[in-house]
Amino acid sequence: MSDHPHIPSARSRGMLACTRCGAVWSIEAEGEKCGRCGHTLHSRDTKSVQKVWAWWFAGVMAYIPANLEPMLKTRTLVMESEATIVEGAFELIHHGDIPVALIILIASVGIPVAKFAAIAYLAFSVTRQAKMSSHRRQHLYELVEYIGRWSMIDVFVVAILSALVQLNAAAQISPGPAALTFALSVIFTMLSAQSFDSRMIWDTDTAPTDPSKKEAPLERH
């Protein structure tokens, strides 16, 4: 049940809005190009759940090797080591750098896994009955969209370290294959979240009905 039953959706009033520029059209324009910006108009992107799942699987498939292969290869006078993401974090714990290790574990393991779970939950929730309210699901979606890009930080750190730590014999760092698979995983997950049509979260009205005269006023802040 909607938390705000008094707010009509554009679809229930026989209208649809362009998701790119916001121009409002009659619902008959479904599938046509927006007259203002040229974007294809959809009242609901019905293919969106399929697209979400396709990118989601691609993201998971890239995330598995990203955790099994080395992210960084470090070579100093005394040692040579290859570390995966988790191994790198445990190395830091060994050195007593627990806060940084925790940040890395949360950023590269906790957040990606939580993102996969959240997107899967959202995609399921629009096709069957959801326990979580529309509000909380919308917040979850915004959180996933906002945080998703930040996972790229790992890849940038590897790039910076590899460029910076080139001290001939003293110390050298080079990127491992996981840098690529991890970057791909982040990009696929971003595409998965972007494919999701969040308007479906709010759909409790099933079919478009006749346009009515009743309108809700716009709140001012």
Binding site: A10, L16, A23, E32, R36, Q138, E215
Partner: peptide, 19 residues
């Protein structure tokens, strides 16, 4: 073929319709 419905604004995230 369809004309723009002026005077309305629609929320891009939840499809709420407002004047």
């Amino acid at each position: 073929p369809h004309s723009q419905q002026s005077g309305y604004i629609v929320c891009p995230h939840c499809d709420a319709l407002y004047v």
